[in-house]
Simulated scan of single mutants.
Amino acid sequence: MDTTVDTRFADTGSSTAPLKPYDPAYDPLTATGPGQGREYAPTYWIGTAGEPPPDDGPITHDIDVDVAIIGSGFTGLTCAIFLAQEHGIKATVLEANRVSWGCSTRNGGQAQCNSGRLKRSQWIQRYGLDTALKLHEEMCDAMETFKGLIKDIDCDPQPGGHLYIAHRAKVMPALEKEAKLLREVFHYDARIFDADTVKREYVDDKEAMGAMHEPEGIGIHAGKLAFGYLKKARALGAKVHPSSPVTSWQTRDGVHYLTTPGGIVRARAVAVATGGYTSQDLHPKLKNRLLPILSNSIVTRPLTAAEIDACNFRTTQVLTDTRILRHYYRLMPDGRVQLGSRSAITGSDAPQRKYQDLLISDLYRKFPALMGIDI
């Protein structure tokens, strides 16, 4: 197919401006589509990442490409990076709104060897030891890949591992059993700390009843990481087109016809790199396959030295607790405390103040010294 560079896609030296304001009540399960050219959510990440880097502007006419990637978040941009680095393929990335508009600029900024809802012991029960070992190996390999990706990206990395904090004493026996399994079977150096050790040597989370420490865990600035991926992908020859939602997808004779408001992208192959904001009508095979879960995150103003001492923050590594609806939190490089957890069930309820108030009360419960601090 013709992949000749068109001058209409030349770097303008600036980021494509938004067409519409951010909609805090947007819900992908009820909306007719992801929108077009929506402004970023007003997050801490976007507010402190600097100006968005240049992109390639919206699709303005029909084009032919080898690979089209739908979605310009961490997944879509790193897909473009690896296609270029390892296969010499200069992909075309299509984004409905602004670059990395969705989850990639609205998360806790925590990279972990995260096994999901199931513990390693449950993997063994469900899939067998051999498969469990391979799954763990894949996660550790992914962490090494991630470390390699961010070596030349200024994303404020905070290494040191992951502290999984028990919010109830009754959780500790299960953590101790899991840590032993991780060390002896998976050769992963998980360690158990009692409540006094956690509060004295790491952080005085008033709910901490002990913790399991994992060696892998890195905190990053999500906005700076997304912008860094964008720069890297484009430097390798990828084209990134915001304000270009895919409104229909047809496949004929092995060619994918992706319709956008500005033109049709004809692609030999398509990578779907959308997540929680995937439209229900993007493709029949994706309908009712994803369950978006809302999450909220807050940051405080920068803490004073006295406030840091009062909370005994002696670590900047990533923290989570053992609640089913768990909290993810840490001390940021600029001295703020960030804390997040689950939010409303539907998009229409998401803007309600009570969800922010619940998260603030959670912050106060963990760190009473921060009562009344500006958010």
Rank of each mutant, 00 (worst) to 15 (best):
M1V: 15
D2W: 00
F9S: 14
F9V: 07
D11W: 01
Y22N: 09
P24D: 10
A25K: 14
T30S: 13
A31L: 00
G37R: 01
Y40Q: 05
I46T: 11
G50N: 02
G50A: 10
G50Y: 11
P52K: 04
P58Q: 07
I59Q: 03
I59Y: 01
D64C: 03
D64W: 00
I70V: 15
S72K: 03
L77P: 09
T78W: 11
L83H: 08
L83S: 14
A84E: 05
A84R: 02
H87T: 14
K90R: 15
L94P: 05
C103Y: 04
R106K: 13
N107S: 03
G108E: 05
L118E: 07
K119G: 00
Q122E: 15
L135S: 12
H136T: 15
K147Q: 14
I150H: 13
K151N: 03
C155Y: 10
P159N: 08
G160T: 11
H162M: 09
A166I: 08
H167R: 02
A174T: 15
K177C: 05
Y202G: 03
A211S: 04
M212W: 02
H213P: 00
I218N: 05
A222C: 10
K224I: 07
K224P: 08
L230W: 09
H256P: 06
Y257T: 07
T260P: 00
G263Y: 01
A267M: 12
A271D: 15
H283N: 14
K287M: 08
L290M: 11
L291K: 09
I293E: 04
N296K: 13
R301K: 10
R301N: 00
A306Q: 13
D309M: 06
C311F: 02
L319W: 13
T322Y: 00
L325A: 14
V337M: 06
G340D: 02
I345S: 00
Q352N: 08
I360H: 13
D362L: 10
